[in-house]
Amino acid sequence: MENIKTSIVNYLKDNSFMDKNTELEDSDSLTQSGIIDSIGLLELLDYISEKYSIEIPEDMLIPENLDSLHGLTNMITSLTK
């Protein structure tokens, strides 16, 4: 779980979505905090799909799953089980 979180934070930092020194809480909104917009979200989805070899079903593409580290981690965990 912690690995997934670290990997997402590193992706966001490496791809200039957020500053290297920015701290992100598990429940922080990625869109409302201005870290990603709709295109950034698509890029993040592509990264996750490729890295974890998963297809994210349409009914899981909701803000609860995609807009925070907590939601993303839970979604990836459930899809890689």
Binding site: S38, L41, L42, L45, E58, D59, L61, I62, P63, L66, D67
Partner: peptide
């Protein structure tokens, strides 16, 4: 996706 039916983000 239809927002009201799915609540999905802009994918």
């Amino acid at each position: 996706p239809d927002f009201l039916k799915t609540g999905a983000v802009n994918v």
